[in-house]
Amino acid sequence: MSVISKANIEFWFFQYHEGLLSESEKAQLMNYLYEHPEYNEDFVLWANTKLIDDVAEDTTQLEKSILRQRGFSWPSITWKQFIGFSSALLILIGAVLLWPKDSSEQGLAKALKNAKIKTVEPILVSSNSTKENALRHVWKNLSAAQIEEHTNFNELEGSSLENHSPSASTPESGTTLDTKMNVSNDNSVDENPVASKPSAEDATVPSSLTFSNQQVSKKSDAKAGSLKNQKQKKMKYPKVKQKTKLDLRPTDEFLKDNPDL
């Protein structure tokens, strides 16, 4: 440290108040002030150059604002809220994962195309059954999904069923349900009491109907073949009149046999 002089006395004052002087240097400065009392006032003024903490403003609100801004209010979240939020999130994820990716007709056609196809014996309908019974058998063999999404009633006219004679009793001439496709589908259950019942793993999903009527058989065969075609994009099912109107008017022969009427 240099010798104290008029040129550097203020730097000595500065260092004294900053605590940068050693004990010997402090003693040296005190001796200088004792010998030069005109610097005492400056020495005191230098002591007052330190800033005084004047900010007494409450920054609690600012702290809360900062914490809110960053979303660190975790302790304020109750366990119930946390569990509820987590449950909702899990349900949402589950719904997304389990949602069918392709529920359209194209998706079902693709699934049928890739499914294992088996041929089973024709389903026989007893000769006493009516047209309604025949349709009921067919209906039972359809899976719920097929009924809802893929049944097309626009093709098979009711008149084709009306041409069928209910008196036919042989398998060749009787009403048959030809289930040519057997798709592995756990959701479908074959409840046909006549045909050989497949195992649960091989529940029958009929894709076509074959009646004694030649026209209907052709259409059914065409449909079975079309399912094998990969380019087929829309499954078509025969249209059936839901309400068959029976002609109850007496025939001319009946009137001749019963003149009383």
Binding site: E10, F14, H17, E41, D42, L45, W46, N48, T49
Partner: peptide, 11 residues
């Protein structure tokens, strides 16, 4: 220099 300015201002 900062403290010197303040000291001079006070003076």
């Amino acid at each position: 220099r900062a403290r010197q300015k303040i000291k001079n201002h006070l003076k």
